[in-house]
Amino acid sequence: MMDELELLKKDWQKKDELMPKLSYDEIHKMTWKKSSSIVKWILIISILEFTLPHLLYILPSSRDVLSVYQNNSMSPYFVAMSIFSYSIALYFIFQFYRRYREISVLDNSKNLMRKIIKTRRTVKNYIIFSLSMVLVMVIVIVIGIYLNNDFLSDLDFGEKAKDVSPEKLKLSLMMAVGIVGVLLTFAMGVIYFLLYGLLLRKLKKNYTELRRLEV
């Protein structure tokens, strides 16, 4: 085997002449192309994850639900919860930015992989946090509907709802909000873990292999 590897090594050193040759201009053009590395993807996905949930508030339908809360006794809790979740989000963004900046292609392979995984873990924790917040929010809204009797007048259901009894309307509203909320949270979780699972499969495999060596 030794001899074969030595033979291979000798041949390898001669391979230079057989390699493709790119011109100065071709290489120059490449320096202006955009990277498509996984670090870039993690950054893009993370920015989306940090911003998308907040864009939800712009949707008219969710604004309606929110206005119910702003109009009644739940309002202070809602404001407190918003402040709480925003400050946590800011903390995560800061943490993410710091870890992201630490990623350097000049590190050795093991460190590079470790830092990428650490950065991703920040986003993962953020996702777990915000998904739990969404669930808490859903529960609060459902309880809110249950406890309040005068909110139905705040919502305009139109002519069709006139024949339905208020209890029934309340119950179906609670069910609808609850089910949609839980399903949405669940779907977001699945999409998220699939996305990252696929993106980082190779990296994780290689990192495990390097780490196993140290045992």
Partner: peptide, 29 residues
């Protein structure tokens, strides 16, 4: 270091590519 780090860690293989039959990787030349 940079080249290997990119190949092992940063580069995302694109799965869409069709293997070109006529292409013999330079490594086999």
């Amino acid at each position: 270091r940079v080249a290997l780090n990119t190949a092992i860690t940063l580069y995302r293989k694109s799965k869409k590519r069709i293997r070109t039959q006529d292409y013999e990787s330079v490594i086999f030349k």
